[in-house]
């Protein structure tokens, strides 16, 4: 039984990664896609904090504890802090790109984007794109 509990954090991380990836694959809106990317990123928080955990240990803050008390690993906690900050800024950058895309093409649906390097998928407007350029 303790074996199963020992595996749970890693299984949880794989599961978070999986559902985030499914969300990205099936996404119909770029804002939703950005949220799914955040879900994928949280799997990395889970792995890092899981690695640094120790049963019966305190948080690595020794203000009210005697220095030398068994504490969990602060190295991975600092990494998670970095991870969160980068996640927030990358989300902001992606959302800015979504806004620009919406302004240029009026579209926020990843499925409606044409794959790069492929010939144009025929559109109703006779090849005219919403931004006025011919396809």
């Amino acid at each position: 039984m303790s074996d199963v509990f020992s595996l749970l954090p890693w299984i949880g991380a794989v599961w978070l990664f999986g559902i985030g990836l499914y969300g990205i694959v099936s996404s119909r809106h770029f804002v939703h896609l950005t949220g799914c990317l955040a879900a994928i990123q949280s799997s990395s928080y889970l792995v890092l904090l899981g690695i640094g955990y120790r049963y019966g240990a305190v948080a690595p803050i020794f203000y009210d504890k005697r220095p030398g008390t068994q504490a969990v690993d602060p190295v991975v906690q600092a990494l998670v802090l970095t991870d969160v900050v980068i996640g927030a800024t990358v989300s902001a950058l992606l959302l800015a790109l979504v806004l620009q895309l919406h302004k240029r093409n009026g579209i926020v649906d990843p499925q409606a984007m044409r794959p790069m390097g492929k010939s144009a998928v025929p559109t109703a407007g006779g090849g005219r794109q919403p931004n006025g350029h011919t396809a």
Binding site: L101, N105, A112, M113, A120, V121, T123, A124, Q129, P130
Partner: peptide, 11 residues
């Protein structure tokens, strides 16, 4: 970057 006209049936 180009996009489909999502309103059409074909798209």
């Amino acid at each position: 970057m180009s996009a489909l006209d999502v309103s059409s049936h074909k798209a």
